[in-house]
């Protein structure tokens, strides 16, 4: 009797995926909002790409990362919501009463959240292609964008799972996702850094790791392989992940501990 950690993680991840698919309203709104961002910003703002600062870049490629990051954050938030739901309905306790690996019990919903994110990101990129997106670095560039999206999603999944495990409360973790707004909008969301007007927004954008995520994606979508930009994005992810995953791990340890 007894399984390996991998088998347990697999079983619990499959369970989470099933549950997500049976609740389409847990991911469809987020997907629609992300696609909506893409359409509306492209339609309403693409004119500003005529400005010399854009150096003739396609506004669609410029705004796509915003939509991808918003989809990623929404998808990753699903990880936390899955955990809170389990805690509230008592399924989490039932899993704790089995010999299942404690790691698997926490990792399952996070992995399921990452897969959800991956699918959403691919769908958003497809919408981009339908709108006429051209990627400077081709297929490999798209892969890099996906990688960044997953990395950023993982960082956010760690955050949302940590809040969920700590508060064990749906409302609290829901409001935890409000961090989404400053992350997305206090950045080079609509225009390049040089065009940001307010000084405070410039400072915020410099601090906000999302800025580096946007810039690294934009560099492969628009400019080609600019390694300095790419590395800054990867670095931002590395630091953010280190913080949020530690937060999640500490919270998880507390939640499965027999206090």
């Amino acid at each position: 009797m007894g399984n390996s950690v991998w088998k347990d993680t697999w079983l619990i991840t499959v369970r989470n995926i099933k549950t997500t698919l049976r609740n389409p309203f847990s991911f469809i709104p987020n997907l629609i909002i992300s696609a909506f961002f893409l359409l509306v910003y492209e339609a309403g703002l693409s004119g500003i790409a005529e400005l010399p600062t854009f150096e003739g870049a396609n506004y669609l490629a410029f705004i796509l990362p915003v939509s991808i990051v918003s989809a990623a954050i929404g998808g990753a938030g699903g990880a936390g919501q899955g955990i809170v739901k389990d805690i509230e309905n008592g399924f989490f306790s039932r899993l704790l009463l089995t010999p299942a690996s404690r790691l698997a019990i926490v990792l399952g919903p996070i992995i399921a959240g990452m897969l959800q994110l991956l699918v959403q990101t691919i769908l958003i990129i497809c919408v981009g292609f339908l709108l006429g997106l051209k990627v400077e670095t081709g297929f490999l560039g798209v892969l890099f964008v996906l990688l960044i999206a997953i990395g950023w999603g993982l960082a956010f999944a760690g955050y949302s799972a940590g809040v969920a495990l700590r508060t064990k409360n749906a409302q609290a973790s829901q409001s935890g996702t409000l961090i989404f707004f400053p992350l997305i909008f206090l950045s080079t969301t609509f225009v390049p850094y040089e065009l940001l007007d307010a000084q405070w927004l410039k400072i915020a954008a410099t601090i906000n790791p999302t800025t580096y995520i946007f810039e690294s994606m934009r560099s492969v979508l628009i400019d080609g392989w600019v390694f300095s930009e790419m590395i800054q994005g990867i670095l931002a992810i590395g630091i953010a992940c280190a913080i949020t995953i530690t937060f999640a791990a500490v919270s998880a340890k507390k939640a499965v501990a027999r206090g």
Binding site: M1, G2, N3, D8, L11, R15, K18, T19, R22, N23, D86, N89, G90, F91, S93, R94, L95, L97, T98, P99, A100
Partner: peptide, 27 residues
């Protein structure tokens, strides 16, 4: 085997799925 007041079930799974998952977890 344990049934506590705190333990519950995932309402989105069927009875059979829950039993199979539980069995799988027990190896």
């Amino acid at each position: 085997g344990v049934a506590l007041q705190e333990t519950g079930v995932d309402p989105d799974l069927t009875g059979r799925e829950l039993l199979e998952l539980q069995a799988n977890i027990f190896g």
